[in-house]
Design a protein around this nucleic acid. Structure first.
Lengths: 249, 249
DNA sequence: AAAATAATTGCAAAAAATTGCAAATAATAC
DNA sequence: GTATTATTTGCAATTTTTTGCAATTATTTT
């Protein structure tokens, strides 16, 4: 294995998990701990990660108790991202909307997963640049500064010209009877087009968004195929969402 | 076997597998490792791949995080950026290609300047997000990981649907008789479309790119309206570019 | 404080890169 | 057509880089 390749793998692990232990990395890339140590030292010098006693942590990730058992409690979005990734298979064509949940999912994508990703989100596309096996198709249009995604006729038109296997539809609010909703009219229009362009809809939502509504409706709750939250699927908070036609993850 | 053919095979292998080992390539194309090494060195210079100890890896495999992309010769680019900005007026509609020079220009844009910017570049668009008075229209399409801009038919089609006042056309090489040129075929196609979509063309180039040529031609030098370098317009290096129909800044 | 774990240093073997050079091949001029 | 020139290619000697190991030192945990 090439040194550069090895360092890239280590870096991806750090990006993915926010922290890595030195022996784990040595095991993963099949070299001695000394070599990994040197790699991490080098990456540290290049400011790609932060070298700490026992391993490395990702930059910008503040870890107050690295050595302790409770090293890092995954946040809600990471949990959702990990669950979402289980739905993916090599060769799929997917659509990712904007939002931090989808960004977290993009960040967590395994390096070896082969995908074609359509997205109107600048941050998501940028995040995906680091995935060598992901082909990125950016949906053009006017960029909405607030959400950093493209909206408007041009984007909607482009969406009418393809269809994908799976859409990960980030949303601001979800309610059993009112459905999915959003407070920005233009984004709602865009998301409606995304739904049309997708065979299956996955809705990754943080549980705090459950049972809330916004001014503009995107679609009925029946239109989604999978609901992903950070909660255990058996959690009572999700009771009312059971017995619907969609899966809960 | 022709050298160019051989290099193409190597490049395809890199694209396909994200990484190649030097001896494997030597075996594949039936030449000595020395020759492959030279090929890879050459391709590295042309930024088609990244040469590493023991082989090569694809540019896509390398992690870009473009907040941290170090803009080399930043000073020259800042000078060019400042000059370019003097051409701008409130209300104009402009087109910005990718490249570090245009990124620097985007960074330097005055906060109060009202513009509409079309761009196919993820880093440029991201940079422009910080400018409250700039409306951004992103040109959609497949994202080329190497250059972080969208390319391909979709992007070219979108470019055929509008026209702008001014295009800041970053380019890899400029030569008095050969014109503007680039080493990536797809990017050349995109830039040709950009030229068609623009009333006036501005070519911001670092002086070290003067009098160099690349494999694929973008356009004749007569097609540009303004040439911007970091040099004083009276500098003797620019003598041969005078008496042309374009301005020198 | 002692034990365990990790980091550093020096070192040597293996792998790879570089350099100079000559033969082979292709391109150009005559 | 031939001669000349430039480029490409492979080879050998040298230098550099990479890597694992062992001994020592530093840090953390019990």
């Amino acid at each position: 294995m090439l040194k550069a390749e090895r360092q890239q793998i280590i870096l991806n692990e750090v990006r993915r998990h926010n922290r890595v232990l030195l022996p784990d990395m040595a095991d993963l890339v099949n070299v001695s701990v000394d070599t990994v140590r040197r790699d991490i030292t080098e990456l540290h010098r290049k400011k790609k990660l932060r070298k700490v006693h026992g391993g490395a942590i990702s930059l910008g990730f503040h870890n107050y108790n690295f050595q302790g058992v409770e090293i890092y409690s995954k946040n809600e979005k990471s949990i959702i991202g990990e669950k979402a990734i289980t739905l993916l298979r090599d060769g799929q064509v997917i659509l990712l909307t904007g939002g931090t949940t989808n960004m977290e999912m993009a960040r967590l994508l395994p390096t070896n997963l082969k995908l074609t990703c359509f997205t109107p989100s600048l941050p998501v596309a940028t995040q995906l640049l680091t995935k060598p096996n992901v082909e990125i198709i950016f949906i053009g249009g006017r960029v909405s500064k607030d959400s950093q995604i493209t909206v408007g006729g041009s984007a909607i038109h482009m969406l009418s010209e393809f269809s994908v296997d799976l859409c990960f539809l980030g949303t601001h609010s979800i309610d059993l009877s009112y459905g999915l909703s959003e407070f920005d009219w233009e984004i709602v229009q865009l998301k409606k087009s995304m739904i049309k362009a997708s065979r299956k809809i996955v809705a990754p939502v943080i549980s705090e968004k459950l049972n809330t509504i916004q001014r503009y409706k995107i679609c009925d709750i029946e239109e989604i195929d999978t609901l992903i939250t950070e909660l255990d699927p058996e959690n009572t908070l999700l009771d009312m969402y059971r017995n619907k036609r969609f899966n809960i993850l």
